[in-house]
């Protein structure tokens, strides 16, 4: 195929694309906001989240394609395909929200805040992070309550015939880890100069300079 050796599109065309290599989060460079051995554990969790995100998305693609192949080639659908995808999307979302919090990627409407000078902006960021953390800690508690209630009721997934709560365990975990990240962000803002979206990312839409990292 003559296409094979065509040069790839130039970097200028990719610079502002949806997902360029330069934008990728380098997990090896991630520093936890927690000190000592706790930081070590937290870095491990961050790695785990990254793996869940990537494998979750790949598994979803494999599962969906397998269903099509099953229907056309073998004349049989995978009756559980829908349930597997539903479980994967919960896993991806709730692993992703704490990963996004670590890297300051949550969507927010920052227009008014951006107009403030650094001092008030920093105070606002402390208040926002602390309140977000409080809300998510509370919700992680109720999520745990919800998962335990589902476990006690014994609901099963109709096709897979496995307990439904198995697919929900990452919900309280994800909410708790996200809350933890916001709590650390509040603390980081209080103890470091500048305004921080997360313990590793400075406010502003340009990526943080490496020397700004603690």
């Amino acid at each position: 195929m003559s296409d094979t050796h065509q040069p790839a599109a130039g970097p200028d065309q990719r610079a502002t694309g949806p997902a360029t290599a330069e934008d990728d989060i380098d997990d090896a460079a991630y520093r936890s906001g927690l000190p000592g051995p706790l930081g070590f554990v937290d870095r491990g969790i961050a790695r785990l989240e990254a793996v869940i995100l990537a494998l979750g998305v790949l598994a979803m693609a494999v599962n969906t394609v397998a269903n099509v192949v099953g229907r056309f080639v073998f004349g049989r659908s995978l009756y559980f395909a829908e349930e597997v995808n539903a479980a994967l999307i919960v896993l991806i979302t709730f692993a992703g929200i704490s990963y996004a919090a670590r890297h300051g990627r949550h969507i927010r409407m920052s227009a008014i805040l951006d107009m403030l000078p650094v001092g008030p902006r920093k105070l606002a960021m402390i208040a926002i992070s602390a309140l977000t953390a409080a809300l998510l800690f509370l919700l992680s508690w109720y999520a745990l309550d919800y998962v335990m209630t589902q476990a006690s009721r014994g609901r099963v997934l109709p096709a897979l015939r496995i307990p439904q709560w198995w697919t929900l365990v990452w919900v309280p975990v994800g909410l708790f880890l996200t809350a933890l990240q916001y709590a650390l962000t509040a603390l980081h803002n209080a103890t470091h100069p500048g305004v921080w979206l997360s313990t590793g990312v400075k406010d502003g839409y340009a990526p943080a300079e490496p020397e700004d990292r603690p």
């Binding site: 049989r76 009756y79 109709p158 096709a159 015939r161």
Partner: peptide, 16 residues
């Protein structure tokens, strides 16, 4: 997505 309905239609000769 219920095993009994799947089983019924399989038994009827269809592809559930």
């Amino acid at each position: 997505t219920n095993p009994l309905l799947v089983s019924s239609y399989q038994a009827f000769g269809a592809t559930p």
